[in-house]
Design a protein around this nucleic acid. Structure first.
Lengths: 256, 256
DNA sequence: ATATGTGAAGGCATTCACAGCC
DNA sequence: GGCTGTGAATGCCTTCACATAT
């Protein structure tokens, strides 16, 4: 600790582990709920429970941000909300464009949690000329031709791709060429991007397949009958307190 | 155990690491594309590129499934498609219910990749009586009252929650009580489930916040051309913060 | 007395690099 | 020669357990 005073978040922010960054939004959500109930302080134990992680992990995570707690007491809710928001970059406004206004794109445009925290839908873009001008979630859809102009005019750096898989890479290329450096991809495709561009993907189909894998495992406890040489289970896994952790999972994906 | 070379035939359906399981769907998708183009074999290098991972990782992943490749040649596409499908449990049909047919639920119901591979939408469920009977994606929406009956009648073990955050835990409890053991949660809430139930979550807001974090870091780096040296204090966009912040403007709000 | 902050230990996952087989 | 399969090395993340602070 050495530094008894003067935290230096800027210096540390460089070294926050990815796994920790991925949990900060979770803590922030739990803290915001506490804040709305006017709870002044919270212990690592309580907050961890609310966020669905264990307390040691939470404390370690917070230690990367700085020493924001008080021993023997806990954490000041408002202060932590502010610190995490700042660390995540939510104290500024991020204009976002959504490309592909089908069912999913419309759902995203209507998603409340969007505007609520730092993000603002700057534009909705679709390739169908018939959609141009139509308002979705109160925002008029614009044609793909306008893509570059929109991004440059509004200084958009985050793009959401909700197009069919076949169009995704092309849209991605145009977004990147126009200046977007972070992409959230809902299309079931691997996107190729140049160095320096972050991509995160959300893939329904993959999530379901992972669930199916575990589901099959659960079911295959007494019926092993299937093609191939699926061997009988040798060591039965008793049902100990599976750490269950709502978390045993890795965030769906990592940046390319 | 570590001494000899435990000659064990490809019989390790048991120890597949989570990280590997999470990538199998990716490989499967790439392989399916190859299969459709009638490509007979593929090398780890090519397949890895298509899936967006590196080849050493892919080979290691496949080694957990067994020795399905041929040295000097590569992997047989059709054979691998089958093996991975089987491993993921996709050779059987998984009935799925979607609860919460708002914008998002409708988008999910319409999502093609659903039916295409092992999954079948068994029912759409919504709490709004006004929606009952209305067809979405060709499937009539049923009222929440029917939830238990549907799950039991169809033997549903996978449920998708696309309700508002406030309703998610309640829906989750009912799904679990009725027999569902795997849940895909789109609501921005931590779900509490008993042991043995798997939950995976998809959270737009969290993904955006993670992107914002990296985006902010990129922006902050532009100004600091050189790392390590003492950067100009004023160049940082970061706020001084450090003290109990009389606050400033905590962006009040939060989703649902 | 109580709860944080953190070295140290232990577990996983990724990457390396080469032996083994075609 | 070419490419897979895999021990070994490396690095990251989690968990433990306790010194430290209020």
């Amino acid at each position: 600790m050495a530094t008894g005073r003067t935290h230096r978040p800027a210096t540390r922010s460089r070294g926050i582990p990815e796994a920790t960054v991925a949990r900060l939004p979770l803590y922030l959500r739990a803290l915001t709920a506490l804040s709305e109930r006017s709870v002044p302080t919270v212990s690592s134990e309580e907050l961890a429970a609310a966020a669905g992680v264990n307390s040691a992990k939470l404390r370690k995570d917070f230690s990367y941000l700085g020493s924001y707690g008080t021993r023997g007491v806990g954490y000041d809710v408002e202060y932590l909300v502010y610190q995490i928001s700042r660390e995540l970059g939510l104290t500024q406004d991020w204009p976002v464009v959504i490309v592909g206004i089908g069912n999913l794109g419309a759902a995203l445009a209507n998603y409340g949690g969007f505007a609520s925290r730092g993000f603002r839908v700057a534009a909705l873009i679709d390739a169908d000329p018939g959609m141009a001008g139509k308002p979705v979630a109160g925002i008029p859809v614009q044609h793909t031709d306008e893509l570059e102009k929109i991004i440059q005019d509004d200084g958009v750096s985050i793009g959401v791709i909700a197009t069919p898989a076949g169009a995704a890479q092309q849209v991605c290329d145009r977004l990147v060429a126009a200046g977007v450096t972070s992409i959230l991809n809902f299309a079931p495709t691997v996107l190729n991007v140049p160095e320096g561009v972050d991509v995160r993907k959300v893939d329904l189909s993959i999530e379901l397949q992972i669930l199916a894998f575990h589901e099959q495992r659960k079911a295959g406890e007494e019926a092993a009958g299937d093609a191939g040489a699926v061997p009988p289970v040798a060591a039965r896994k008793q049902q100990p307190a599976t750490d269950q952790g709502p978390d045993g999972d890795v965030p769906a994906v990592m940046p390319a």
